[in-house]
């Protein structure tokens, strides 16, 4: 029972990381239906910005995160302007290929500039505290990550549901032409979406960098893929879905490693994922709306 609870905590902290990345992923998807494969790499860029602002500028973790979020928000808007906007009226798969190209570009431009080796975050950036509650180990980093994921999700949900910008976003996602007729600037709305999505990725990047102490140019690939899986699992386009999907995937992987065989972790986790999709094809929180004729 103790081990089970411990594994649950392990799963939650891993899931929170997937959820953090998945939030931005699913938000961009929700508005423009683009699987932004470069999202994981924007996260990586954010992690590097955070790293350099801590090591070179000596800023603290909060300042580093703000720097990274601003830098990546700009990066996201620029990427959208250059690479995705010209394709807005083309097929979705064309935009998907551009996203793959953008992902490779970010990875290898970073390698070109900084080398492929990992960089180590100073331990002092976020000193570890460990708590033992009834035999269960939990660190301040775990709490930090889980709380951030939940808080960011709530903020995001608030922005989308309660603010004027959010209303514009939802309008664009439902019917772009109608939104234009209602006087909404589609370009501006999509730019804001990318800015927020990329800033979220940057926040996730800095947290992951601090959590695991290292950053490297290819760090975005696997978490990016897993976050995409999590987003789809929860019901892509839905903010709470990303959260749920992230936690489910994290706990799933943890339990496979903990009670099955870690050697088959990814195979079993992906297998269960397929099963869930087969039972509930629109993801855990997705509504089956049926197709319009």
């Amino acid at each position: 029972m103790l081990e089970f609870s411990q594994q649950l905590i392990n799963g939650l902290s891993l899931g929170a990381i997937y959820a953090l990345i998945a939030l931005g992923y699913t938000m961009v998807y929700g508005i423009i239906l683009l699987i932004n494969f470069a999202h994981g790499d924007i996260m990586m860029v954010g992690a590097f910005v955070g790293f350099y602002s801590i090591t070179l500028l000596g800023s603290n973790i909060v300042a580093a995160m703000i720097f990274a979020m601003i830098a990546c928000a700009i990066l996201g808007v620029v990427i959208e302007k250059i690479a995705y906007r010209p394709l807005r009226n083309s097929t979705r798969i064309a935009a998907l290929i551009t996203a793959i190209g953008m992902s490779l570009f970010l990875e290898y431009a970073t390698i070109f500039l900084l080398g492929p080796q990992q960089k180590v975050f100073p331990q002092s950036a976020f000193p570890l505290q460990q708590y033992e509650i009834m035999g269960l180990l939990i660190t301040n980093k775990d709490i930090f990550i889980i709380v951030s994921a939940v808080v960011l999700m709530i903020i995001l949900q608030f922005i989308i549901k309660q603010t004027k910008t959010g209303k514009a976003m939802r309008a664009v996602s439902v019917d772009r032409e109608a939104a234009v007729l209602m006087g909404i600037s589609v370009d501006k709305t999509i730019s804001i979406t990318f800015a927020i999505g990329s800033a979220l990725a940057a926040a996730a990047g800095v947290m992951i960098g601090v959590y695991y102490n290292t950053v490297n140019p290819l760090m975005g690939i696997i978490p990016g893929l897993k976050a995409f899986v999590a987003a789809v699992l929860g019901g892509i386009g839905l903010i709470p879905g990303a959260m749920v999907g992230g936690f489910v995937l994290g706990i799933l992987e943890t339990f496979v490693s903990g009670y099955g065989s870690s050697l088959y972790r990814d195979a079993v986790a992906f297998g269960v994922l397929i099963l869930i999709l087969l039972i509930k094809p629109t993801g855990l929180l997705g509504k089956n709306t049926g197709e319009k004729v």
């Binding site: 081990e3 411990q6 392990n10 891993l14 695991y212 339990f255 490693s257 903990g258 870690s262």
Partner: peptide, 21 residues
Amino acid sequence: TEEGFVKGDRDFKATLTKIKG
């Protein structure tokens, strides 16, 4: 016990909890 991770993994706590057992 024989366990494994894959290149790029950064979270080992689940398996370590098992090994600790």
